[in-house]
Design a protein around this nucleic acid. Structure first.
Lengths: 281, 281
DNA sequence: TCAGTTTACGGCCCACGTAAAAATC
DNA sequence: GATTTTTACGTGGGCCGTAAACTGA
């Protein structure tokens, strides 16, 4: 029976041309290679080399064999990669979320319920999330609404409400509440990585310009220095104090988000604890 | 590095379901399989089995791995087959001939000049011979004429002349020579495996019916018993005496054959001794 | 109790490396 | 003499099988 080791050494010989060079590079002794190449010939049942007393080279058979052996070796690579990748995916819980705060909740929950699983998370808008759930890219997604598709499992996953975050001296600073339309048309500063919120405000405030800031720290600097209004949510407010700004709630219904943890029924079976835990709560 | 042996045992386990059954069939001990399957998991870097204390089965990874392993094993089969086939072709001299007698000459010559080569011979008519020479099916062919294609090497390879072989009491028995036309229209008995001769007589004696006989012995019996004329050539006449018949030479030019040994220039290089030997003769 | 898997252990084989020979440049 | 392949040979690791423990049906 053919030994992969021998095939590997054979292919290496094909690259380096002499047994001694090959032996050196593979960290085995020369005689070992001599022996193994002879064994390989036995395994093939065919002479693969043209030998003279102190020279050895591939013959016609050897040339074909080495071409084929290369194929086999690369296919073995492919095989192991596939299996390893499957294994990884089996141990990885892949979350797609529409917003950053539910991700944190989910991470906390998942590490508690499935501590042996790895976790990957991505922030996407709702369309690619649903698509990704269907094609297996995500095991679980978090949406800012309850999907109607009855083939999916949807569990309530917390609420979040949007506020205007107004700088000192802003005309509406003292308002107890505002509507999107009240500030529609005003330029605002916005942190980029807020998931579906960006889609929401673009839709509800079509006349405003949004100055997007990619870098988290830069955004906070800007928020401190600028006199432009920004956004904030109750989730943020509950965790850290406001710096030099006033948060005014937005009354519109669309600013009151109820998140859903969504997965396929198949995933519901694979990860039953989510359903169990979220229902008893 | 993955061991071919382990893959093989793994696939076998996939067929037989239990390690003990597999061990029995592969003629190794159970513990050996336990060990080797664990080694295989190490080689993959992935758990392939779902184990309980006295039961073992493939897990999801294992199912994929076994599918892929099967592929690899069959590709190794393909690889070795290819190489072996190439090797065989390298040691085989394949002759296509238009007639049986030159084959004997060629066999004598080839075994003398290239004693280590295997030899395969086929009898075909000229068209498939030329086609087969081009596509590599034959290394060498023998034609009843000298081909015009200058890309081919053609060497004189002996002569053979056709005779009528007339039964006792046949009207033309005493003729010193005849032409095809003299007997055209007569029914004749013909041995099937005479290569291009069959084409020749059908063409030159379009009005005759030829009773073909497949079996060599049956043909000779028939020739002895029948009163129908048959054919014979000088090559046969020189080797064995006539039985109860008279051979009358056919004067037509087309009955005087000069054979050519034909090969491509490439084959001329691979088998230089044919050219050398036939030219010096 | 039986069938199956795993662990423990001892012996043997063989595959490796060292050393040296042979050959070619 | 330098380089390369091959042969010879002794040794150690590892691989196998036997025996036994463990488990669940």
């Amino acid at each position: 029976m053919i030994e992969f080791e021998h095939l590997f050494q054979f292919v290496a010989f094909g690259m380096y041309g002499t047994l001694s060079k090959t032996a050196e590079i593979l960290h085995v002794s020369q005689p070992t290679l001599t022996r193994n190449m002879k064994l390989l010939e036995k395994e093939f049942g065919v002479i693969l080399f043209a030998r003279s007393k102190n020279h050895i080279a591939l013959n016609e058979n050897g040339l074909l064999a080495i071409k084929e052996a290369r194929k086999i070796l690369s296919e073995i690579e492919v095989m192991t990669d596939k299996v390893r990748q499957l294994d990884r995916s089996r141990h990885t819980l892949s979350l797609g979320s529409c917003a950053p705060y539910p991700v944190m909740d989910f991470v906390r929950l998942a590490t508690e319920l499935y501590p042996s699983q790895s976790l990957t998370t991505e922030l996407r808008s709702t369309e690619p999330l649903l698509q990704g759930l269907r094609d297996g890219r995500y095991n679980v997604i978090i949406l800012p609404f309850k999907p109607t598709d009855s083939a999916l499992i949807a569990l309530p996953f917390g609420k979040e409400s949007l506020y205007f975050n107004l700088p000192k001296g802003h005309p509406q600073e003292k308002s107890s509440s505002l509507s999107f339309s009240d500030l529609d048309g005003t330029a605002m500063i916005v942190y980029s990585h807020i998931g579906f919120w960006k889609d929401l405000i673009k839709e509800t405030m079509p006349h405003s310009r949004f100055l997007l800031q990619d870098q988290r720290d830069d955004f906070f600097e800007l928020e401190k220095a600028s006199s432009l209004p920004s956004f904030i949510t109750d989730r943020v407010l509950s965790e850290e104090p406001l710096k030099n700004r006033t948060a005014v709630p937005i009354v519109d219904q669309s600013a009151q988000i109820e998140y859903s943890l969504v997965m396929t029924k198949k995933m519901g079976q694979r990860y039953p604890l989510f359903t169990k835990w979220l229902k008893q709560k």
